[in-house]
Design a protein around this nucleic acid. Structure first.
Lengths: 245, 245
DNA sequence: CGGATCGTTGACAGGTATCAATGCTGGTGG
DNA sequence: CCACCAGCATTGATACCTGTCAACGATCCG
């Protein structure tokens, strides 16, 4: 290794080790010795809402750790329609399929301006070959993706449109400290829940009228978790029972 | 290692190395030296239709490779209903979440009498710690689960009931050499596609009447792939255009 | 034979998709 | 500065699909 590269590696180590969200990321378990195995510094990238991180079919050269913001993974169907198959947030890894030498399976589009750490595939593989510390986190991430996908399947695609929207809002509020959460555009909401734009709009409009959600900005809402859970459980507020609680 | 254990290990190696479907399974890339690392022989288990491999929440001690047959992973929702989140077949691994020390996330129920290789979690972990050859296959399997889940999400939960059923049948026919495939019970079909038992029944009955599927046994059908693809693409056979092709 | 389980079918109500029109908002260019 | 436009959200009317409730047939088995 060249002296200047050693220098770079040290800067990497130093930078990653001081990372504020290190406990959340793929590199959580790495030691100083592990960081020494990296050849190049890890770059941090910023993207604005609507920008594309990569497209389906692109040849993958890196995976990305989400430092902040929100990303959707979009899959297009043969008929031109599209579905959003996942939403990724702080600590999640985007483009995991790159490790299997497969092309990217989705389009990755930024929902809320986001920053990423770019992890070149070669570095990850080499690190994993030469250190046992990455494997555990990789395993954990795969598990989480799968278990999230299962939740998605079982909750977000069953039941009435109202229930699905309620499930989605609760899901989205889970990573916010408060009851505030990202409110997707109506078209995205449809692509998430397998309903039409119009139905999504109607449900959201109704929730707003009933005070279950309050907009603080076009894409941020405060949600009434309790009311939404009631919706999920099918408690339709019966007008005749209006003042029984 | 005791002599008799070495002997066992050799039998394992011999047995696994001669496995007829070895190229499909988790141990595909292992060398003779890797097999020597195993302490106990790998057991083969047989289950009949309807039997349960494990239940959601069970403490996991093993993962299973499907040698033959069909397994469904079932997830129950709070309201008592259930969804089938995955169907596993030859070469697939059941219970991958066990590697992450999590309890089993689903109920694993046999759809078609199946045989498995039982792989104790401890053995797998040790093997993975001491040999680099398992990791590649593990990675590949996680990837496949995720990419299958995405397909599921994007295809099997969108569109009309007819289209979903058509998608399902094509999906199920992919692992059969021919155009013959497993035909799930109507309730299972509902749990797979997020439709009701009655709707599933109506669609299947219609497909049978139109000759798109032909039963060869209660749970095996020959499918007209072309007709099903037409259904998926929304080509509804217009009676007035009956003889235009 | 009777019972249990599963598949099929019917009638009807209710939810959602579809088509269409109308606000609303932010940005652009005159 | 304001008119205009593009994109998004909302709302309405209607047709269609699916869920629901119910009944009936088929098959298997004790």
């Amino acid at each position: 290794m060249q002296p200047d590269q050693i220098d770079k590696a040290w800067r990497v180590a130093s930078k990653c080790e001081q990372c504020a969200i290190r406990s959340l990321v793929l590199f959580a378990d790495l030691t100083k010795e592990d960081f020494d195995l990296l050849h190049y510094p890890i770059h941090e990238l910023n993207f604005a809402t609507g920008e594309t991180l990569y497209n389906q079919g692109d040849k993958p050269e890196a995976i990305y750790t989400v430092r902040s913001g929100l990303v959707k993974l979009v899959s297009y169907l043969s008929d031109g329609s599209f579905r959003i198959v996942r939403i990724l947030r702080q600590g999640d890894v985007v483009g995991l399929e790159a490790l299997d030498n497969k092309n990217y399976l989705h389009h990755a589009v930024i929902l809320e301006s986001a920053s990423f750490c770019r992890l070149p595939v070669g570095e990850i593989k080499e690190l994993n070959d030469n250190s046992p510390h990455l494997f555990k986190q990789l395993t954990a991430r795969w598990q989480r993706v799968i278990s999230d996908a299962d939740t998605w399947l079982s909750k977000l695609t069953s039941g009435f449109a109202k229930q699905r929207v309620a499930h989605l809002l609760i899901y989205l509020s889970q990573d916010c400290q408060s009851t505030q959460c990202y409110l997707p555009g109506r078209e995205d909401m449809g692509a998430l829940l397998a309903i039409t734009t119009e139905t999504a709009s109607r449900v959201i409009a109704e929730f707003k009228r009933k005070g279950f959600i309050k907009l603080v900005s076009p894409h941020q809402a405060i949600i009434d978790q309790e009311a939404l859970v009631a919706i999920i459980q099918g408690d339709e507020e019966d007008p005749s029972a209006q003042n029984q609680r």
